[in-house]
């Protein structure tokens, strides 16, 4: 249902740079991304492309805008200026349904953010069931109106109904089966009925990852997934992320685990002062850094 006359695009943010044509190959493209809180510049005119299958690690000192950059990628944080494209859709355009786009971008937080009022299984199935039910209701509504209008149409001009092959029961069963499969994969199938508050940090984070995976996302965004964990539990979470990487999932990871970044990433960004100061393959960034700030940073953390 496209309008005959195109709606004038309306963008989030206060400043407007003209939109440049986006690269059709890139999965995520960022154009002149800027974020300011008053006078404080958090992100300073970043333009970047992320191709399908790439694993991007973002490193940098705290306060360098890493997390803000990641949160701008799915417009959890409204950019002050610039645009984010995901599969050719401008996420900063208010006419683009951001909820439809976010369903294909999983995100994992530092603080897990599992829903405290639901058990683990419900946590995982909530979004898939809700989305499927929304579609089902939409078809039913459409059928209802077709039926009413068919009543007034002559016999040879009746419109066909959209076939409905599923039901609420079926949707819930499918979602639960998928959730159990994912839980089985991380070895937490027996925890399906417990509440998140009884789980350990590592278990919670793995379930948070699985929750994002249940929506079959095209890209996963990790916001310091291991920073709130005990050193002991970091391993199990990183292992899961590594598995996902091997399966070819596109990922953007903000991390302080340099060893992990070196091992998994195909590209590393070093951010400082709201800018990407240096980027390249892990060997380049860790092996032969050129930027002075990066050298100083690496000498401190390695």
């Amino acid at each position: 249902m496209k309008d005959a006359k195109q709606k004038k695009p309306k963008f989030v943010g206060t400043e407007k740079t003209p939109v440049e044509p986006f690269d059709a190959e890139a999965l995520i493209e960022v154009q002149h991304l800027t974020k300011r809180y008053g006078d404080l510049v958090v992100l300073d005119d970043i333009s970047e492309k992320i191709l399908p299958g790439e694993k991007v690690a973002i490193i940098g000192p705290s306060g360098s805008g890493k997390s803000t950059f990641l949160r701008c990628l799915n417009v959890l944080e409204d950019p002050t200026d610039g645009y984010v494209f995901f599969e050719g859709n401008n996420l900063c355009d208010l006419h683009v349904d951001i909820n439809l786009q976010r369903r294909r971008m999983g995100m994992v937080f530092q603080q897990f953010n599992l829903f405290n009022n639901m058990n683990v299984l419900k946590n995982i199935t909530l979004a898939p069931v809700h989305v499927a039910m929304q579609d089902l209701r939409k078809t039913r509504r459409a059928n209802f109106f077709t039926r009413i209008s068919n009543f007034f149409r002559p016999k040879d001009k009746k419109r066909p109904l959209i076939p409905v092959q599923t039901s609420r029961k079926q949707i819930v069963a499918d979602a639960e089966q998928n959730a159990m499969r994912l839980l089985g994969r991380i070895g937490l199938a027996e925890k399906a009925k417990v509440f998140p508050s009884t789980l350990s940090g590592g278990q919670r984070q793995r379930i948070a990852i699985v929750r994002a995976l249940a929506m079959n996302p095209k890209v996963m965004l990790f916001d310091e997934p291991t920073s709130a964990l005990d050193p002991e539990m970091v391993g199990e979470v990183l292992e899961l992320i590594k598995e996902l990487a091997d399966e070819g999932m596109t990922m953007v990871i903000v991390t302080h685990e340099m060893g992990f970044a070196r091992e998994v990433a195909t590209r590393v960004f070093f951010m400082d002062g709201g800018k990407i100061r240096e980027q390249g393959s892990p060997e380049q960034v860790f092996g032969s850094p050129k930027d002075d700030r990066l050298k100083e940073f690496l000498s401190k953390v390695l």
Partner: peptide, 18 residues
Amino acid sequence: VDIGQTEAGRTLGLSYTT
């Protein structure tokens, strides 16, 4: 209620109202 709960819901593609 922790703002993270809202953020987690929104990133899963649920609307603000949901």
